[in-house]
Design a protein around this nucleic acid. Structure first.
Length: 571
RNA sequence: CGGAGCGUAGCGCAGCCUGGUAGCGCACCUGCCUUGGGAGCAGGGGGCCGGAGGUUCGAAUCCUCUCGCUCCGACCA
């Protein structure tokens, strides 16, 4: 492609609304343009990288035995009503009506549609197992889209769905897909971790997320420093310390704590450390149940763990009025002593003595509180967020914390959707059986964005070769210099012949601008064709990542470039 | 949805308080000049000042209402 004839304009300045590097650089490099909040056009350059990821995904899906199909983006409401998710899914599901006033939604995921296909097409165990996938635009009406392609409302996703005769069969595909995912992200040149994850509202029994490691990631993950254990913090288990409660040295005593509400304020006022406080959170479930949750003062509640314990879908901190109603005091003074409510506590609280808690009255706390002596707890459980240094739940190692970008997610769905949508088959005995399902997603655009998060410097993007929109850029220093122009065009044509993806920068711009643009676009290899090199019958080859330059005889450049590209693709 | 902020040329911004011909830098077009790390000079095109009402002789500027966007908290590839 000749730059002068391509649609590609770079920005010197960073658009004001781009927060993270990948968004900034994709805008500046002319890969994407925003159409509306969380909705982007992929300009030619951006689309090339997107297609690269799609191709890798396709190859690995096919290798893993999955079969490609394509489902509609607009889905009739009936299917979603049948699965129950029309009501459950919430505002993220964009609902629309057609001219006849029939209800549809834009598919945010396709369990319903695929299950509908399979229940119609599959009658016999002989047609199984089956693993189907598509690469398609999804729409989720996110409350707050941000970070460019990292969290758009419309985004390209690869989604695969597997159907098996039994759980053992489903486990086999799951493992196959897990391995395929590893290969995909390795081929994309990404540093990532596969972690145990919560299943969220997709449902199902277990799942893993594939997290690209990046400080700008929206997720926190833990991994063990000595074994293979890794998990999203949402899911990360914290062991029961099983510590013996020490003998209390203090007795219960009410103290005045005027206007001290937060853990920090109370701790400072009473000259104690946050660890000596018992944090009492009044929470309300989506089933309108109110419970008190106790945590050590310096810990954070993991609400997914709480939901699992309570068997509900969501919890939120109680409103000011509800807190007053339950504890008899404004927020900031809640405590378990004498509290008339269901009380649950994190494991750590069991051995706390000489502790400090709210006294359920304005401007007062208790000191010398001992768990078990001064208040009773209905159940102790793992309720807190894991932190760095926590013991590994699987071995004797310690947990480390990372930030990650979720680029892929694999789920074992069990029979949730097949039961709801009555997707069954006849087994060898002629008995009707329900299908076992799995589903497997990859955010295509997010993978490109994540690659940029991991691969950039002050000058711009540094694409890994497999994702680069072009493998080589040939920069002619001065297009008005005939010999230079001819040599550059000759090399460009030679590289095209050799099957290299090459961008020829033939613009009548000053060399400095062209070099800056080449760096910004992140094309892995650059060949500079200038009078200076031609004098010695050689051209300069520069590697984007290392910045290393070398002079190569004109006649050899083609072969060298082919070799470098080949190496970089197989690395 | 709650809280904060912003809408002026393709991008980044000033002007608004104190109403009076709509500006700057980048980008774009023409010409000259220049050509190994975002050159210089000269000329030029481009604006419903987000939209609708209102106040006023006169509104980008003041008032009201709207719409859009961005940022901070609960969802997800």
């Amino acid at each position: 492609m000749r730059y002068s004839q391509y649609l590609l304009s770079t920005l010197k300045e960073t658009p004001a609304d781009a927060e993270v590097v990948s968004h900034q650089l994709m805008m500046r490099a002319g890969m994407i343009r925003k159409v509306a909040a969380g909705i982007y056009s992929y300009l030619p350059l951006g689309l090339r990288s997107i297609r690269k990821v799609e191709q890798i995904v396709r190859e690995e899906m096919n290798r893993a035995g999955a079969i490609e199909l394509l489902m509609p983006m607009v889905v009739p409401a009936e299917l979603w009503q049948e699965s129950g998710r029309w009501e459950q899914y919430g505002k993220e599901l964009l609902r629309i009506k057609d001219r006849k006033d029939s209800a549809f939604c834009l598919g945010p995921t396709h369990e319903e549609v695929i299950t509908d296909i399979v229940r119609r097409e599959v009658r016999s165990y002989r047609q199984l197992p089956l693993n189907l996938y598509q690469i398609q635009s999804k729409f989720r009406d996110e409350i707050r889209p941000r970070f460019g392609l990292m969290r758009g409302r419309e985004f390209i996703m690869k989604d695969a769905y597997s159907f098996d005769v039994d759980e053992a069969g489903a486990d086999v595909v799951y493992e196959k897909m897990y391995q395929a995912y590893r290969r995909i992200f390795e081929r994309c040149g990404l540093r990532f971790r596969a972690v145990e994850a919560d299943t969220g509202n997709i449902g199902g029994s277990s799942s893993h997320e594939f997290m690209v490691l990046a400080d700008s990631g929206e997720d926190a993950i833990v991994s063990c420093d000595s074994c293979e254990y890794a998990a999203n913090v949402e899911k990360a288990e914290v062991c029961d310390p099983q510590a013996e409660a020490p003998t209390p040295t203090q007795t219960l005593q009410k103290v005045a704590t005027p206007a001290r509400r937060t853990i920090e304020e109370v701790a400072e006022f009473l000259k104690a450390r946050p660890e000596q406080l018992i944090k009492t959170l009044i929470v309300q479930t989506d089933a309108e149940e109110t419970v008190a949750v106790l945590l050590r003062g310096d810990r954070e509640l993991n609400d997914i763990k709480l939901c699992r314990l309570l068997g509900c879908n969501a919890v939120e901190l109680a409103s000011e009025e509800l807190v007053k109603q339950v504890t008899g005091a404004p927020t900031g003074f809640a405590g378990p002593v004498g509290l008339k409510a269901r009380v649950l506590a994190d494991f750590e609280v069991r051995s706390m003595v000489d502790a400090i808690t709210g006294a359920n009255e304005l401007d007062a706390h208790y000191t010398g509180v001992a768990c078990g002596r001064d208040f009773a707890v209905e159940a102790f459980a793992d309720l807190r967020e894991a932190v760095a240094g926590d013991p590994c739940p699987r071995c004797s190692g310690k947990l480390e914390i990372w930030r990650g970008i979720e680029v892929g997610h694999v789920f074992k769905l069990g029979t949730k959707y097949s039961t709801a949508l009555d997707a069954s088959f006849l087994d060898a005995q002629g008995q009707e059986q329900v299908l076992f399902m799995g589903c497997y997603g990859i955010g295509i655009g997010r993978t490109v964005a994540a690659a940029i998060e991991q691969n950039h410097d002050a000058n711009g993007i540094i694409f890994p070769m497999p994702l680069a929109p072009f493998q080589v850029i040939v920069t002619m220093v001065n297009p008005n210099d005939e010999p230079v122009n001819q040599a550059a065009v000759a090399l460009y044509e030679e590289l095209l012949e050799l099957g290299i993806e090459v961008l020829l920068d033939d613009r009548d711009e000053r060399p400095g601008s062209k070099f800056k643009d080449a760096d910004l676009l992140g094309i892995p290899l650059r060949v500079t064709v200038g009078a200076r090199g031609l004098k010695e019958s050689s051209l300069e080859l520069q590697e984007r990542r290392s910045g290393q330059r070398e002079m190569i005889p004109v006649a050899e450049v083609g072969a060298v470039v082919v070799e470098r590209v080949r190496q970089a693709l197989s690395a």
